[in-house]
Nucleic acid binder design. Structure first.
Lengths: 134, 134, 134, 134
DNA sequence: GTGGTCTAGACCACG
DNA sequence: GTGGTCTAGACCACA
């Protein structure tokens, strides 16, 4: 479960590649697909897999390192770090986060819409899933 | 019958402003907050409201026009168009699309969770927003 | 044959309406559909027919009057004038006119292409037509 | 295999520059002057050649990309794409389309005539230009 | 007053 | 060095 090539990156999404990749990695960690201490793919390997430039991958790793999400041990590799208290503390809800949730919702609904689902259907789908998961 | 400002734009989201705005407008239409024939805010008015440049708004309106979502009448304004048959026809739901929707949902819930929102809160948020337009 | 409503104007053509209308009127005169002395539709009538604003029509008529192509008799109407010698003299070929022919060709080929005709087919079609007309 | 500058743009034509340029590029592709996989001039280079603003060129490239005519590889350049099946399928010729082609041809010949070119000259001009790319 | 076109120029993402 | 995003601001076409 350590190696997880193939984060999904869409070259036609107007969102910058680096942002997509960063989001995908954080997402993999948040959902446990990448666990604490797991090694990330090497920069070059990931670049080849995703067919993007190694500089772009390196930039993302550097950014995640600065954010304290991963840790790079020179000559060894890049690994998922344990989340520090700060990260958890920052989870208080602010107006800005509400705003971001609205944008997320719109992206979600827009994407579902392109699959042919109406807003009502999407809500219903989501409601059922969450109920079942409880 | 206008319905003027307040589309959700997050300047900190790496997604380009114009892409966020396009999604927000499509969202407003999909949820019925903007109905067929309704006039969109004027380019300049919306630019002022969102504190972005008028050209950026104009670009979005032009893209929506090309996509057949809105209609602009020269010298008059921009209006929501009736969806054409093509769009409706493409709404066939397949098992594969259900599967994709599940993936989208999971990502959405996880990302919202990273902002500090519980699944139940997310569902409630979405439900309320979709209902708003009805 | 005097009255010729319905010049074809396409609101979705990026060419300005006034330019489309001016071109159409000059074209009608050049091909004899409007003869010398013929009356043009009134401004208001034409505006209604073409579903465009009367100001736009009036602007075109004024421009054609300035160019000496039509003549407005107050309280009577607008009429096609006899071409003066200047117009005929200016038909010498210049580099600028070659350039304009190239642009015309491209528009023609682009439009034919949208009907499903390949460039070669278009040339062949044109060649045959001209031969037959001789 | 580049093929660089010299698309025909006429600043005196009321047709917007971007529309003229889009047509000219499509023309170059349709006639084979630009082949599949060929790189288009860079945005800035073409802007300099045509003495227009880089944004105008970029707008055209973006439209051609959306139309699926070209493909832009981020940080690399813009390239002619292979036409997809859809485009080819829509090339069914009907009697109605033949009729429309006749109308287009007539207009084209008449307009060229207004510039001082005889039908024979026009045919020769078009024939030569279409042959150029083969 | 509405949208559309164009310019000039800054800054970013990517290779 | 490539294309993309955004801004500021002028001017035009249309109603």
């Amino acid at each position: 479960m350590a190696m997880t090539n193939a984060f999904d990156i869409d070259a036609r999404d107007p969102t910058p590649l680096y942002a997509q990749l960063e989001r995908a990695i954080r997402f993999a960690i948040a959902t446990g697909r990448l666990g604490i201490g797991d090694q990330l793919p090497t920069v070059r390997q990931l670049a080849v897999n995703l067919r993007i430039n190694a500089n772009t991958v390196a930039k993302v790793y550097a950014e995640l390192e600065r954010a304290g999400v991963v840790e790079t041990r020179r000559g060894v590799g890049t690994f998922v770090r344990e989340p520090d208290s700060k990260t958890l503390t920052s989870r208080r809800r602010t107006a800005a986060q509400e705003q971001r949730l609205r944008v997320l919702s719109e992206r979600f609904l827009a994407e579902a819409n392109m699959l042919g689902f109406s807003p009502a259907e999407v809500v219903e789908h989501l409601r059922r899933r969450v109920r079942e998961g409880e």
